[in-house]
Design a protein around this nucleic acid. Structure first.
Lengths: 139, 139
DNA sequence: AGAAAATGTTAGTATAGTCAAACAAATTAT
DNA sequence: ATAATTTGTTTGACTATACTAACATTTTCT
C-alpha cells in the first residue's frame, strides 16, 4: 500500500499544498520560511519526495504536488481540521494551542480514532443542545 | 526549567516505571523487550538519561529512576490514562487503537489541551446522563 | 569450581533530518 | 546589458536513534 511518510515529509507536503492554495505556486524559499528550516533542508526533502512520487520539482523552478502528493496533503489537512475543531470549538482550547496540537496529532492518530472523532463532532452538530451543554460545561 | 525529553527517551522512562511497578525492578533486557529495541540501544539511552539525571544504573545492575525521572514517568502516565479514557470509554475506540493513540499523543499534547480534556472527562463523570447520551450516540 | 547460558556493554555502522558555507542560476535594478 | 540581489543547490558535518557483532560479566547448571 501507500508507504508511510515521516512526520517531517508529511509537513512538507502539507506546506506545499497550503502555499499552492494561497499563492497558486510553491517555492523553496516559502516552504523554508513556513517550516522554519533552511532551504538546503527543503531541497533534500524535495528530492526524497520526488523520488517517492509525491512532488514535482524542476531545478530552480516551482514545486508542485503529484495527485498522490495532493491526496496525502488533503488527507492530513482533513485530520488537522477535525482535530482543531475538536480542541478549539468543543473543548475550548485557545486557537494557538489547539492548532499546535492538531498539527502534531494529525500525523499519528489512527484511522479508527479519527473516524470516531469525526462521528462525535458530526453528531454534536446534529444535536445542538448536547453541544451547547458540553460547551457550557467545559467553559 | 526541566529540559524537554524526546519521545524516545520519555518512552524509556515510562517503561522503566512500568517494570518497577510490575516486577519491583527494571532490567535492561526487559526494557529492550518491551520497547522492541536491542539492548545496546537501551544502554545508550540509559547513559543519556543518567547523564541528564533521570535514571540510576550501575553496570550490570538494575535500572532505577531518580525522583526527577519518576516524576516525568508519572506525568506521562497520567496523560496516557486520560487520553486512553477519552478514546476508549468516551469515543468507543477499541482498546488497542485507543492505547496506541494515547501512547503517541501523550508526548506532544499541550498542557492546555490536556487540562481541557481532563476537565471534559471529569465533567462527564459528574453528568452521567450526558455521558450516557454521548456514548449512545457515538456507539 | 568450572562450563554453559543468559544478560549487559562497547564499538562501529546506518539512516533521517537538520545546518552552514560555498557555489550556481535567476531576477531585479540601474 | 551588466551588476547587485535574491533564490536555489550542493557538499560536508552533526545529532539522535537504532542496529550488528564482538566482547565482558553474571547467573545457572552440573
Amino acid at each position: 500500500m501507500s508507504e508511510k511518510l515521516s512526520e517531517s515529509l508529511e509537513n512538507y507536503l502539507e506546506t506545499i499544498a497550503f502555499l499552492k492554495r494561497e499563492n497558486k505556486v510553491a517555492r523553496v524559499k516559502d516552504i523554508s520560511k513556513m517550516l522554519n528550516v533552511k532551504s538546503s533542508s527543503v531541497n533534500i526533502a524535495l528530492n526524497v519526495l520526488m523520488e517517492k512520487g509525491f512532488v514535482l520539482h524542476e531545478r530552480y523552478g516551482y514545486v508542485d504536488l503529484t495527485s498522490k502528493g495532493q491526496a496525502v496533503a488533503d488527507d492530513i489537512q482533513k485530520k488537522e481540521d477535525i482535530l482543531f475543531l475538536f480542541f478549539h470549538d468543543i473543548l475550548g482550547v485557545e486557537k494557538e494551542a489547539a492548532l499546535k496540537d492538531a498539527c502534531k496529532i494529525e500525523h499519528t492518530i489512527s484511522d479508527e480514532s479519527l473516524a470516531k472523532l469525526i462521528y462525535f463532532v458530526g453528531m454534536l452538530d446534529k444535536e445542538p443542545a448536547l453541544k451547547k451543554n458540553i460547551q457550557k460545561k467545559t467553559k
